[in-house]
Design a protein around this nucleic acid. Structure first.
Lengths: 336, 336
DNA sequence: ATGAAAGCGCTAACAG
DNA sequence: CTGTTAGCGCTTTCAT
């Protein structure tokens, strides 16, 4: 049996209004005594307020939607974890939407979230198209972007500075004596994790008086392990030979490691590898992967906090979170 | 502006009842002509039915809840991916709940899902306590278990046969000439992934006339990489020396690989390692990890399908899904 | 084929 | 301090 507020009211001999006040913790409008009586009935009945009915009148569902390319990749799931933790602590639930990086699927989700009247949206990793933007704007709920941003539209975001990050990573490599460094980038078209990272790499090289060799820049079709695995041989053809590769994701780097192992190339003795992200794989591969780390969990957390700030009518500012190079065992220091 | 069914009705010169019939695709109750007229208004207004209001009356929210220990582990996120895919294809959304394997947190989630009136629940990996069971029973919605089961309560589940799986894995190792095989299990108390897997291992040994040496069975406190890493040295102390280790998760196995690498132990030449699960890390580590595979994505998919079958009033049966040993590069064949 | 009207379970004025 | 009541936006008889 699912009891309603009416049942509680009846058994406690009060009106539904009073019960409502009590369950909503409104400070006045009832005596301590009635409060106890009502609470007792609620307890006995194990009454649970119907959030659907509540949502209909209050126009708040205490639910947020998060859109991400794929829950089952480490990057996204770590961010989601952060989001979910703060949402939960604030008594909200999160609906996950696996967009598969697919436009029409994303639109379907947006429509669904709109119909379900979620209170806000977090949008991860993908680029925010005009269609998405408009759909969200029409829903009239706040949105925050994670690990992506929009120049065209004014939408709050949290991300690292990708250009700075690869600049830092490249600098790190240079400081360890590397001068022939290959860049294994994601897709050229990726406006966030593509070109900016390549630019950071190039700038660092230039700043150190190293000529950038375009033939040492490689664009993978995606950020996956297979790609890194498959592209190492091309990278090795760079001449003069490269001593380090800066990969644009941990998976790409792990792929390089796998292939290097097969090829009998010792990492880091013969080739240094620097990953990007600091997902859990970085610690699990052998040798443990040195990386340019993004605070994935925290980014989710921060995004969530921003969203709730917005929901509470507070002001927020975009957050550029710090990256950090984490030294593990895939980068050697070159001395000659 | 958020239009309501009333607005649509007004602009189309019909009653809300008619609009309702049309948006719900009820076969009769209106002419083709009115249908077109109404659809046109809906289009022009970009009207989106309010799912909250709809849920209040229909008692169906088109939402399911998924409880899992932690979205950011590869096992869970892969299962979630399967769940979400079928939910989406059936126009349902999924609320994720990170239980952290924590009892009171799980109860909070259960209460929340109950208040939100989700249509059903999928419960993953953890053991279903009496408290959980009762909470779900009181909600009066179907539940299905993934990668766990309950002897005490009659609850549908989908899982592999853990005992058979390790039996199969051990047999595989034996067929490749291994006779001194260590078992690196998860926690002894785990009624699903603990004892049953150890028993499968023991049975296989016995069936092959190999004596089981209790000092070669190790219980890790969890299934993580750190544990595998930390426990290899103990395992190596087995005497006579072990030629293979059967780990109860990919992470455990990856940890073993990491430590073996540090110790200069060649895998598989000097030590064979067999993982369990077949998460994505298995392909990413070096050398690629041979594993006893569970069809994680499919398990999520099947669980979801079972739940929707239940929701549709169809009968279902528990699903014991097949495991499979996937050969990669961490198991050597011993010939002497 | 179509409409009127009664709720679904709750909140929030407004009255007293 | 407490109750009455009017919705929230939709579905669903029951008439017509």
């Amino acid at each position: 049996m699912n009891w309603t507020i009416k049942d509680v009211a009846k058994y406690a001999n009060v009106s539904t209004a009073t019960v409502s006040r009590i369950i909503n913790n409104i400070s006045r409008g009832y005596s301590e005594e009635t409060k106890h009586r009502v609470l007792k009935v609620i307890e006995e009945l194990n009454y649970q307020p119907n959030a659907v009915a509540r949502g209909l009148v209050s126009k708040r569902t205490n639910t947020i939607g998060v859109l991400l390319p794929n829950v089952s990749n480490m990057f996204a799931s770590e961010v989601l974890n952060g989001i979910e933790d703060v949402a939960h602590s604030l008594e909200h639930s999160v609906i996950v939407c696996n967009t598969d990086s697919n436009g029409s699927r994303t639109m379907e989700y947006l429509r669904m979230l709109s119909e379900k009247r979620v209170d806000g949206i977090i949008f991860t990793s993908e680029i925010l198209t005009d269609a998405y933007y408009e759909a969200v704007r029409d829903m009239n709920v706040p949105i925050v972007l994670v690990s992506t941003m929009s120049d065209k539209h004014q939408v709050p975001y949290v991300k690292v500075d990708d250009q700075q990050a690869t600049y830092g990573g490249t600098q790190y490599l240079i400081e360890r004596g590397h001068r022939r460094i290959a860049m294994l980038s994601g897709p050229k078209e990726d406006p966030i994790a593509g070109q900016p990272r390549v630019e950071g790499y190039q700038r660092a090289l230039t700043a150190n008086g190293i000529e950038v060799d375009p033939s040492c820049i490689f664009y993978a079709r995606d950020f996956g392990h297979q790609m890194g695995y498959g592209m190492l041989e091309q990278i090795l053809q760079c001449s003069p030979a490269v001593t380090a590769v800066l990969a644009s994701s941990d998976e790409l780097a792990a792929g390089v490691l796998s292939r290097a192992y097969e090829l009998g190339i010792k990492v880091p003795a013969e080739l240094s590898v620097l990953g990007f992200d600091n997902t859990k794989i970085a610690e699990m591969v052998t040798p443990p992967l040195s990386v340019i780390a993004q605070p994935l969990y925290d980014m989710g957390k921060i995004a969530s906090e921003m969203l709730f700030d917005l929901l509470a009518g507070r002001n927020i500012a975009n957050q550029v979170v710090p990256f950090e190079v984490i030294e593990r065992d895939t980068v050697a220091t070159i001395t000659r």
